[in-house]
Amino acid sequence: MGNLLSDWCAFCKGESGFDKSHFLGLLKAHNSNEDLRTIFGYFPFAENLMGRAASVIESARSEGSLYLLPKIEADQYTLVRLGGEWLKTQEKICEALGVSEITEICRSAEVLFVDQQRLESALEQNIPHYWLFDEVGDAIRASKISDSDQIYALFESLYGLAADYYLAWYIAQPLFAFDIDLESYYRFWRAGGKCALTENGFLVST
């Protein structure tokens, strides 16, 4: 058993204390089925969590990157279709949160395939993409099944897989009560998709 996994077990048993950032690389270093079973075994819904994490890890690669990247880069038509499904999910999320302004933006947005430069330029602006992210993050944090240090550390390690909060939330979904289905985001990410919700459209790229 590697040192980081040993630290995790001691931390979850209350035998040692660590800052949650200590476990940022836990799932990148220990992602065999046996390790995942150990890591998630300290939480409810362990099999569900393990299955989600294993699915993400199996659909990704890590060569040449600090974080997991999708193995597949789908064609633009596939990305537009999957991006549209994720956009509809975001509209439902906005309705559940009661944020009418962003709901209307989602409802009227056209899905547009753009090059990486245009996407990155949009993401440098203060756009609805970030407004919705903040709303979702607040709702999830407020509805976690526990505020224990172990839950916080687990969320940190899930973020550490791909530096992607939505993907982390997809895996951790059994651990919070906010009714959100992030399966469409996972399918979009798995196809190599990146996106930006702007006031003038929903931009997708690779």
Rank of each mutant, 00 (worst) to 15 (best):
L5S: 03
F40L: 13
V204T: 06
A162I: 04
S32C: 00
A122H: 04
A172R: 05
C195I: 00
C195Y: 12
Q90I: 00
L26Q: 10
Y130I: 07
F43T: 05
E63T: 15
D147F: 05
E91K: 12
I72H: 12
S121L: 06
Y77D: 14
F43K: 07
Y42D: 02
F113S: 08
I93G: 03
R190F: 00
G201R: 07
K144I: 06
L87T: 03
E85M: 11
E73C: 09
Y186T: 05
E73H: 05
L82T: 01
P128W: 03
C195S: 11
I39Q: 06
G51F: 09
N126A: 09
Y67M: 05
L167K: 10
G51V: 02
D149T: 00
S62M: 09
G2F: 00
G64V: 02
G25I: 01
Q125W: 00
C12G: 06
Q76G: 03
V99A: 10
R141P: 00
S146R: 09
V114W: 05
A54K: 15
V56P: 01
G25K: 04
E34L: 12
A168Y: 07
E110F: 04
Q173I: 00
L197M: 06
V204S: 11
F113H: 14
D35Q: 14
Y67T: 11
A109K: 04
G83T: 01
E91R: 14
I180Q: 06
Y42C: 09
D147N: 14
P44W: 09
K194V: 06
I72G: 00
D115A: 02
D164E: 11
R141T: 13
N33I: 08
P44M: 00
Q125D: 11
K194L: 12
G84Y: 10
I151H: 07
Y67D: 08
L36N: 10
F45D: 13
A53V: 07
E183Q: 13
C106M: 11
V56I: 13
T206R: 14
D138S: 14
G98N: 08
L66Q: 06
M50R: 15
F43A: 07
C94K: 05
D138V: 12
C12F: 06
K71W: 06
E15Y: 05
L66G: 11
A122N: 07
